[in-house]
Design a protein around this nucleic acid. Sequence first.
DNA 1: CGTGCGTGTGAAGAGGTGCTCATATGAGCG
DNA 2: CGCTCATATGAGCACCTCTTCACACGCACG
Lengths: 123, 123
Amino acid sequence: MSTSSHARVVDADRVSAVMASLPPETAIEGLAQVFGLLSDPGRLRLMAALLEGGEMCVCDLAAACGQSESAVSHALRLLRLNRVVKVRRSGRMAYYRLADSHVRMLFDLGLTHVTHDEAGSHD
Amino acid sequence: MSTSSHARVVDADRVSAVMASLPPETAIEGLAQVFGLLSDPGRLRLMAALLEGGEMCVCDLAAACGQSESAVSHALRLLRLNRVVKVRRSGRMAYYRLADSHVRMLFDLGLTHVTHDEAGSHD
DNA sequence: CGTGCGTGTGAAGAGGTGCTCATATGAGCG
DNA sequence: CGCTCATATGAGCACCTCTTCACACGCACG
């Protein structure tokens, strides 16, 4: 097996064990995608608004979150495609709500972490 | 406060209530930053490895996660600056471990969401 | 039935993010 | 003591993301 250029490994057993225990790549990428959705302040504000407001239309969401209606529409599209929010149409209005409670749990858990420890800059 | 250009609002009361209930901007940005750290497959793999391996050096982490040592070092630096991981130095080795249990909770919660519902593409 | 309003979408540009390559630092080893 | 190994870091570059602008679409209302 060849020492490729420099395959430095200290604890080969642990490396093998860890490699075997890593979640499949699909799970990892799905996770990254979900957390990516939560990594934008604009989307976070929309979700926070929906957590509080229950069900809101695009224009109210935009007003409440201080964003343009276009930006909100784009953001909601992303969230919709990833099943984070659901739409209810009534006439020309579109009312959005959160699809499940996972978002609330992730939101609260993250918020706990953030408020508990500023996690700012440090070395 | 006047009607600015086109301040479309359907339910002004709800908008006000939601605006009042939104977390402060600092919390929102902190949240976004934390989730942003979790939104990269490479970092996610590192964290998964540390969840399993407990404490590992950079080169083993790189081998286990299939990334270059440089990339791992950069990633660990980010995680370190955000207090997600801690270092223990021994000679010229650097052993990393997770700083707290929040990561495990977020990881598992997200994983539940992902494996439960593929959250792929849909309209 | 045409016009206005709420919403959705595409293109394009600015900005951010993560990689690699090259090099620095510092500890151990011969 | 100089050399090498493990890690850290900086610069540069490719990629992705988010925002705005412009316009399309459908429904309601006159």
